[in-house]
Amino acid sequence: MHRSLSRFPAVALMIVVLALVVTQARAGERFITVTSTTSTQNSGLYGHLLPIFTGVTGIEVRVVAVGTGQAIRLARQGDADVLFVHHKASEEKFVAEGFGVARFDVMYNDFVIVGPKADPAKVRGMTDAAKALVKIAAAKAAFASRGDNSGTNKKELELWKTAGVDARGVSGSWYRETGSGMGATLNTASAMNAYALTDRATWIKFANKGDLAVMVEGDDRLYNQYGIILVSPAKHPHVKAKDGQAFIDWILSEDGQEAIAAYHISGEQAFFPNAARAGY
């Protein structure tokens, strides 16, 4: 046996051991996994909220931020302990199918329709989102859609339905589905001066607005409710029900709700807590 031959297994073993050590270094920690939406993540809410919770309870919260559709799929597979998203119908279905324990309202903000300042569809100042969409469709003005089955995307599709426009039927013309997150979609809209539906928190925080501005707001239909659900330990026994429930309890508590209300972006309150709690 020459030297390089005898050395090889030793090096191989060392690398495997190192890889294991890296993994194990974090294994002892107490944490829960929360799947949530890109909008809450991009708004910076978690950076404000989670350190407070961890400071109180010692429980680390690991947030995987994806679209609501994907977040629900992850939770169904048992890859999260808590689901924190914003599409009530899907959330209730999730609970009804036994994947979630119970759903609680947490907070709300609203969606806005943003668009180029030149406003080719002449929708600026409108308060009826559906009518605004009709005008955008009639003007064949560019509209960037998430197209990713997220909460925002579902809301947008509901609005198109109300407007009576089959936008997806003309996808690829003036209606463009980016198939990506809120930020990426806003980047696209900004680059091609398109209209887009976005939640207000992401919009305020978004730094690449370009020539875009808020065009339509104030419609009741643009209401954006966030809900939180503990993934069912009956369905997925490994779910950290106790710590997950602790997070939910805190979010719904007076402290949690105040912490949400205290979060401001550029001087604006980003989310409005509305948890319904007994005796409060």
């Binding site: 996994t33 978690y46 690991r62 947030v63 995987v64 930020g183 978004f206 690449n208 607005k209």
Partner: peptide
């Protein structure tokens, strides 16, 4: 990885995140 802050956030996912925040 899930791009979890302080756990699985690496250079490329951090870049993707900043792009999605519009902070080019």
């Amino acid at each position: 990885g899930g791009n979890i802050d302080h756990v699985t956030r690496v250079m490329t996912t951090a870049i993707a995140l900043e792009v999605s925040k519009g902070d080019l």
